[in-house]
């Protein structure tokens, strides 16, 4: 146990709660808010299975993005796939048993970080270079990329330049699961601390930022609706109320 261990231990506790509770809270809103009208972008699948397949193509291959901007698609795929790889590899800091998938990915994972950083750098560059993208970017859009770059670059530093004590990091995170404070110990390695602070910040802002696109895409009515409006009546509860009470306007509804 040391002071750094306590500070970062608490920080990660808070960050974990925020990201989990935050995402659940937001997703609950998306789940519960009705889409009152059928608005799938056509042509849309005529079956639920078809919709699942459409969504899979969007999530796994960024199909629509591929249609709209090939270069951006390349950068987006680079970043997201490398991120997935890096995160999978990171599971070894949190579990004892190393999953065979992760083991299989290890050799590729080595380069994942470089691809991720290259992708991020390209995404950042286009925010400066392309006039249309510069126009729509708020400071937070630049900073999000900078934050991810900071995480990636500090990770790379640790892996390839100034190694950190991984077994210590691992035992620190393993002991965070319990309140056995003995293991709440972190080395004062500045690069590691930068890496961890940035990760904690990313977790904290996740539910209140555009990062909600990851869970959000599954709720997008233009992509997740079946083209069956003529066969099946689709109606939101608040709209059904108009039918039930036989009125035209919401303000005429009796509560």
């Amino acid at each position: 146990m040391n002071a750094l261990g306590i500070i970062f231990g608490l920080l990660f506790w808070v960050a974990t709660i925020v990201i989990i509770v935050g995402i659940i809270y937001k997703v609950r809103i998306y789940w519960k808010t009705p889409a009152p009208l059928k608005i799938p972008t056509m042509p849309a699948p005529r079956t639920t299975g078809g919709v699942v397949f459409r969504m899979f193509r969007e999530v796994a291959f960024f199909q629509s993005l591929f249609r709209s901007d090939k270069l951006l698609w390349v950068f987006a795929i680079m970043f997201h796939y490398a991120l997935a790889l890096v995160l999978l590899r990171h599971t070894r800091y949190f579990t004892d048993t190393i999953n065979s998938v992760v083991l299989f990915l290890q050799p590729f994972g080595m380069y994942g970080s470089f691809i991720m950083v290259a992708g991020l750098a390209a995404l950042l560059a286009r925010r400066f270079i392309i006039d249309r993208v510069r126009y729509i970017s708020a400071p937070s859009d630049f900073l999000m990329l900078v934050l991810l770059l900071a995480i990636g670059l500090s990770g790379i530093m640790m892996k390839f330049v100034s190694h950190t004590d991984i077994t210590l990091v691992k035992s620190f995170f393993m002991s965070l699961r319990t309140f056995n404070f003995d293991g709440w110990y972190l080395p004062g390695d500045p690069i590691l601390l930068l890496h961890l602070s940035a990760v904690a910040l990313l977790m904290l802002i996740f539910p209140i930022s555009k990062l909600m696109h990851a869970p959000g895409i599954f709720f997008s009515p233009t992509r997740n609706q079946v083209d069956n409006s003529r066969e099946k009546r689709h109606i939101a509860p608040w709209a059904a109320e108009l039918d039930e009470q036989g009125v035209d306007y919401l303000h005429e509804l009796k509560k």
Binding site: A35, P36, L72, A76, K210, H213, S220, P221
Partner: peptide
């Protein structure tokens, strides 16, 4: 609260510019 599209779309745009 009545249109999911409204809040969801305002929340999740990543400003990718596509």
């Amino acid at each position: 609260t009545r249109y999911r599209s409204f809040q969801l779309y305002l929340d999740i745009c990543v400003k990718c510019g596509a």
